[in-house]
Computed example of a mutant assay.
Amino acid sequence: MRADAQRNYARLLAVAEEEIALNGADASLEQIARIAGVGSGTVRRHFPTRHALLAAVFRDRVESLCAQARDRVGRTDARAALLEWLSAVTTSAATIRGLAMALNRDRAADAEHEHCATTQLTEAGEPLVRQAAGVLAPGVTIADLLALITGIALATEDHPDPAAEANRLFALAVAGLSPQGEVRRPAAAR
């Protein structure tokens, strides 16, 4: 990139991060261009789709989460390693405004390219799920777990303490709705 193009890219990315933090994944591309002092064509040259913009905005955080997953592979307590990583993903998705929506859109669009946050997190988390297979319910996949986290993050986005509430709900999902071995039927079903 030319020096002016690099400056425009950096400025657009910085403004986009701020706007998405304020307004979520649907932040106005025109507003981002206006604040950055460039035309909407410049935004579209650097980020041809909203997905490309979201991928760029969340790239560092997603890469950090992927590195955290890789760091946990091979730990003795496979369940704890998986749950620690899933908790970090939950916290990020709940507190980084727009990330949960981007993950949800990735899943809905079946996005399959290298910068797709869902694809990256799936690839990073898959080894953790494989190593914990003996302690997970049969058939649980990383896609299931990421969908659960995304739903929890979307549900808690406007909570006064989204990270705490998201992690509380995630812990509830991990523990289950009733103590193990005690499945109670509603009175009408007896």
Rank of each mutant, 00 (worst) to 15 (best):
G139N: 05
A10F: 05
A171N: 12
G139L: 08
F170A: 06
D158M: 12
V140H: 01
A94I: 10
V135F: 03
P162G: 00
L65V: 14
Q180A: 13
R185Q: 11
V15I: 08
T42W: 13
P179T: 06
E182K: 10
I142S: 02
L86M: 15
R79M: 12
L177E: 11
A55Y: 09
T42Y: 07
G125M: 06
L172R: 12
A25I: 02
T156A: 09
R70G: 12
R2L: 07
A187C: 01
A94G: 14
D26P: 12
T150F: 13
A124D: 00
E17L: 15
A16R: 08
R2Y: 00
A175E: 07
V43E: 10
G134D: 15
D4E: 14
M1G: 15
L148A: 15
D144P: 09
N167W: 05
T90H: 11
Q131W: 10
R34G: 11
T95H: 03
L128M: 06
P186R: 14
A100T: 08
G24I: 06
G24S: 05
A56L: 00
R107L: 09
T156D: 05
L169A: 09
R105A: 13
T150E: 05
A102Y: 09
R44Y: 15
L13G: 13
V174L: 01
L146G: 00
T49P: 04
A25R: 04
A67I: 06
L82W: 00
L145H: 08
A10Q: 14
E112D: 10
N167A: 07
F170T: 04
A25C: 00
V73C: 11
A137W: 10
